[in-house]
Design a binder for these strands. Structure first.
Lengths: 119, 119
DNA sequence: TGCGCATATAATTATATGCTTATATATTAA
DNA sequence: TTAATATATAAGCATATAATTATATGCGCA
């Protein structure tokens, strides 16, 4: 019997390159790293990255378009999370192992009283 | 005693994003995947990718600039290989596990009699 | 030395990307 | 229904990227 490696999934070069290009951006890479810890809403990202709301929205859209993240409306907020059923999920998880934890960003939100309490 | 995970090396988000952006290109990702198998010279890449020589040269330069690949002159040829001493080497290796083998490209070179014999 | 081959660099152009501003949509509460 | 808040989308602009052509450099050999 052949052992299956659940951390491994081979993806064609073109698709992999697209994923890497997508995550080859400081903001987006930080975002997925955060989402690997906890779900997070758009307005929280805006505070964290000190960036305009449309800019944040556009980054999230690109990742949603490739299926890496998913959204869920909760009242007036839209909460994003990692899409664990994506065919790229294992690759993303693997990548994130090489990046430092972004937990401090959530701590910072708590401190500033900016954490949204709809979860 | 804490076990050290030799497949893991944490790199800051900005640097990681730069590496991912670099490898987030179909041509460059294929190149490193090939180099993970065997070293390869510029003119061979030109044949494989059916791309102009300057274009190939520029792709290689970008990767050399970040230390992912290294070059070695052998007579009139310049042979490229993976830089196994790069601080990004483990990350690159990990990424390549998710990409199909590019061995066939070397086979194709052999068939066409285009393999350079300076190795 | 001078020629031919391999590679690198420079300049240019076309396209892609990321951000901004303006506007539209959706939800909640008055 | 209207106002306020949260988010998404569209259009425009500035910068980045990748390819091409032209040219320079480096090596081997007659």
């Amino acid at each position: 019997m052949i052992k299956e490696d659940k951390s491994l999934k081979v993806i064609d070069v073109k698709d992999t390159a697209n994923i890497l290009k997508l995550l080859g951006d400081k903001t987006r890479l930080s975002m997925v790293s955060m989402l690997a810890e906890q779900e997070c809403c758009v307005c929280e990202f805006v505070e964290i990255f000190q960036m305009s709301q449309p800019s944040i929205s556009q980054h999230l859209r690109k990742m949603r378009d490739l299926g890496i993240v998913k959204e869920q409306r909760k009242g007036q907020w839209v909460v994003y999370s990692l899409n664990t059923t994506s065919e790229y999920y294992l690759l993303v998880r693997e990548l994130l192992k090489h990046v430092p934890s972004q937990r401090e960003k959530f701590d910072w939100l708590e401190e500033k009283g900016l954490r949204i309490t709809c979860y």
